[in-house]
Structure formats: C-alpha cells, structure tokens
C-alpha cells in the first residue's frame, strides 16, 4: 500500500499519458494490418503491404500533396503577414490599436462552420470559384490570427534598446532588422509558422466549404474514405505524420535545452 502511495503521482502520469497516446498507438498498429473488406477495424494479420506502397489507395497521395502545398503556402503567407501585424501591434502606438487587437482575435473565436459558410457566400459573390485558390485564401485568413498571437508574445519580450544600440553602432534599419530584431523574434515566428501549418493541414470544416470535387485535401480524403471504407494507407500516413510531429518537438526541445545550457553555463 505504501508503495502505491509513494508512486501515486507516477501512476497517474502514466495513466494520463496512456490515455493520450492510445489512439496514436492504435493507428500505428493498424497500419500493419491486412484487413478483409473495406474496413480496417478488426485485426486480422500482420502485413507490410501498406507500408511498402503508401500511395496504393486511389487518390490518397494526391490529397496529401494538395494538403502539403496548401499548408506550405498558407503558413508562409500567414507568417509573413502575421509577423508584420504583430510588430505593428507590439511596437507602435496608433489610433485603433485596441480595436485591431480585438479584430485579430475574431477569427479564432468565430465557430468554423459560421466562418466556412460566410466565406463560401463571399467567394460566390466575388465570383471566385471553389477550389485550391479559395482554400488557400481561407486558410491564410484564419492562420494569420494565430501567427499574430505567437509572434506578439515574443515581440513583447524584446528590449527596444537593442535596436537602438544597433542603430547607434551604425546599422541601417534593414541591417538592424536582419541581425538583431529577426533573430531575437525568430522563436516566436517559427512557433507561429508551425502552428499555422498544422492548423491548415488539419482543417476540415472551412476547407469543405471552399473545396471543389477536384480539390480534395487529406482530411477530406480521410473523411470520405471513412464513409466508403478506410484503406490501411490512411494509417500509414497518419503514423508518419505523428512521427514527423514528434521529431519536430524533440528537435525543438533539444535546441532549447542546448541554448539554455550555453546561456547558463
């Protein structure tokens, strides 16, 4: 009994972690399944077929490619625009600053269904056809808010004296930005960009409103596949994505730890 009491915290942590990770484990395990029929819901036999041929299911890799392209363009554009907004909000006092701050939060607070349907109406009115371009524009829009929030938090911690010191030492405004401001704000910008990418890659509802039959993103493919029957390849790609995300997080932490050590050491 004493042993349980002493290790209660540890046990609780293991349980919570298990609760969080079981879905990922199930996805990974079933990527090695060899199902009969259209559904990959019961374990039958071990097989590497899906891993050997991840694009084997019709349309899956096209949808993955589209999602990656949209995610890349949307997150890059949103990062550039959002970073500029964040600097303007964090650095300059201007009329309507409080109002702008509020408006930036709006897309984060609006339910996605509402935003998706409104966008569809807007695009129809403007004569913009549903499809890849519409999806990308929609993604850029909601990603900007998240980038702004991430970068603004970082900008708030920057000491404006550092930019003054750079100017004082003869750096032009551009040099000051490239050598001082940007490197110092970079962790926030990177966090914003990663967040934007994963939000874009992940989005289903807004995408669904703005997509055409020929622009099927990965989440849409999976959703459609789940209706018709899910190929094992979905699990393979899901597992790969989980591994990539894990790699990014671990690399980020290792980098942060190293910087911490060099700063404290």
């Amino acid at each position: 009994m004493a042993w349980v009491r002493r290790h209660l915290l540890f046990l609780a942590a293991v349980l919570v972690l298990a609760y969080m990770l079981v879905p990922n484990v199930v996805v990974a395990v079933f990527s090695f399944n060899d199902p009969v029929g259209r559904y990959n819901y019961t374990w039958r036999a071990f097989s590497l077929d899906a891993w050997a041929n991840p694009c084997g299911a019709a349309g899956i890799c096209q949808s993955l490619g589209l999602s990656l392209r949209v995610g890349l363009v949307a997150s890059l554009t949103a990062t550039v625009l959002g970073t500029m907004v964040a600097f303007a909000l964090g650095r300059h006092r201007f009329r309507g600053r409080a109002g702008t701050n509020l408006l930036i939060f709006m897309p984060m607070a609006t339910p996605e269904v509402v935003m998706g349907s409104s966008l569809l109406t807007l695009f129809l009115m403007m004569g913009l056809p549903a499809g890849t371009l519409a999806i990308t524009i929609a993604h850029i829009m909601f990603c900007i808010s998240f980038v702004v929030v991430a970068v603004k938090a970082r900008v708030a911690t920057l000491d404006p004296r550092l930019e003054e010191a750079a100017a004082d030492l003869g750096a032009t405004p551009l040099q000051t930005f490239l050598r001082v401001t940007f490197p110092l704000a970079f962790p926030g910008i990177l966090a914003g960009a990663l967040l934007a990418f994963s939000l874009s890659f992940d989005d289903y509802i807004i995408t669904n409103f703005t997509a055409s039959p020929s622009s099927v993103t990965f989440p849409m493919y999976v959703w459609g596949a789940a209706q018709r029957g899910a190929p094992v390849q979905v699990n393979v790609i899901g597992t790969l994505m989980f591994l990539v995300a894990l790699l990014v997080v671990v690399a980020g932490q290792a980098l942060a730890a190293r910087r911490e050590r060099s700063r404290a050491g």
Partner: peptide
C-alpha cells in the same frame, strides 16, 4: 548604454 543593451 546605462542598461548595457548587449545583443543576447
């Protein structure tokens, strides 16, 4: 600078 303002 009074506050040094070194580039961290």
């Amino acid at each position: 600078f009074q506050s040094y303002a070194l580039f961290p």
